[in-house]
Nucleic acid binder design. Structure first.
Lengths: 193, 193
DNA sequence: ACAGTTAGGAACCGTTCGGTACAAAACACG
DNA sequence: CGTGTTTTGTACCGAACGGTTCCTAACTGT
């Protein structure tokens, strides 16, 4: 009943995600969002309540999209060796940066900025990183690395992921990124006894 | 000649550093800075030009303080084994968080936020992380780890440092932090061949 | 004592922030 | 063909932002 909205809410959230991804929560202004989403103030506030609520929905979308995709990749058995999956993933992150995408990771940026003081956002970040942790764990389970080391190794990989993603946003650290990914490879390829 | 200022510029920068450390560059408002530094607008702008310049001086101070201290610790030979120094350092970071200090690292936060788009700030962040890199390298030089692995390992440690510091700002990740530090210990203690 | 110089303080600047109010426009349904 | 309902667009809001101006107070050198 009544007038239908002229935009697809899913598309709008997708566009909003890109804006937040580039500028972070605090860095993205209403004007940035409106321009990026292609709609006006009235429509945004009617459909998404406010900036904070919109960001939470964007975070959820990010989890269901980028994060879930990463977890799926880490769990996919078309690469039988779990360590190879992890290596490929970190390599892919570096490639992303090399090809010019310096947005990093939406969750990691949210964890670093002032927005991390918001408990809703902090909770979303936490669950997102836990999903990543789960992905690394399943990948490690498909490796020849002793099970006793999986727990600590998974945490190291999460931390490494966050560090890599954060540094992706700063310029001219390409050498560090590539060698960090190499180090992960060496680390996983030569398991300790 | 003329009226002397009533505050010590060094102390003021020190206080400003604490404000930026808690809130980040963009998150710290003029009101925050003035309150934290204990002076008024006129004095601040007369002595430090503007917020941006003040932050650059704060970053320099941070390098000469916290960063240099970390590098010194990694280079100090009162702990003969380099790996032990690195382990102690990461352990210290975790302890800092446990004791309630969730400020993380000023450089890392600057690298993550919108301020990273500023080239002056980005440059300062880069040199700071390079200093950390140097610290890790000298520590590795004082270890029994094969020299061929030092380069990549140092980069991994920098990335790990950044990740750890970023996650320090988010709540309730204590388990990940502690186990990440443990993982570093295991990694360094059981060198590969 | 006085002139010169600088710090301190507060009022104020325009801009931008996130958010709201409301009228006009566009549709569904009877 | 209205009538009711919802979206859309715009004008507007108060608050906070970083920054400037300018007057007064406080000191130095002569």
């Amino acid at each position: 009943m009544a007038r239908p909205r002229e935009f697809d809410p899913d598309d709008a959230i997708e566009r909003a995600m890109n804006v937040f991804w580039q500028h972070g929560y605090d860095g993205a202004s209403l004007a940035d969002l409106l321009a990026g989403m292609g709609l006006t103030r009235g429509s945004l506030y009617k459909a998404f309540k406010d900036k904070h609520s919109l960001f939470l929905r964007v975070l959820k979308r990010y989890e269901q999209g980028a994060v879930a995709q990463a977890v799926e990749f880490l769990s996919a058995e078309d690469i039988p060796d779990g360590t190879a999956r992890i290596e490929a993933m970190f390599g892919g992150i570096v490639d992303t940066v090399v090809s010019g995408d310096k947005r990093g990771c939406l969750l990691c940026s949210a964890a670093a900025g002032p927005s991390s003081y918001d408990e809703d956002i902090a909770a979303a970040v936490k669950t997102g990183l836990q999903q990543m942790h789960g992905g690394f764990s399943t990948a490690l389970a498909a490796s020849d690395i002793p099970t006793s080391q999986h727990a600590t190794l998974a945490d190291l990989l999460v931390t490494q992921y966050v560090g890599l993603r954060i540094m992706s946003r700063s310029v001219d650290q390409l050498d560090i990124l590539t060698r960090s990914a190499e180090a992960i490879t060496q680390l996983l390829r030569h398991p300790k006894h």
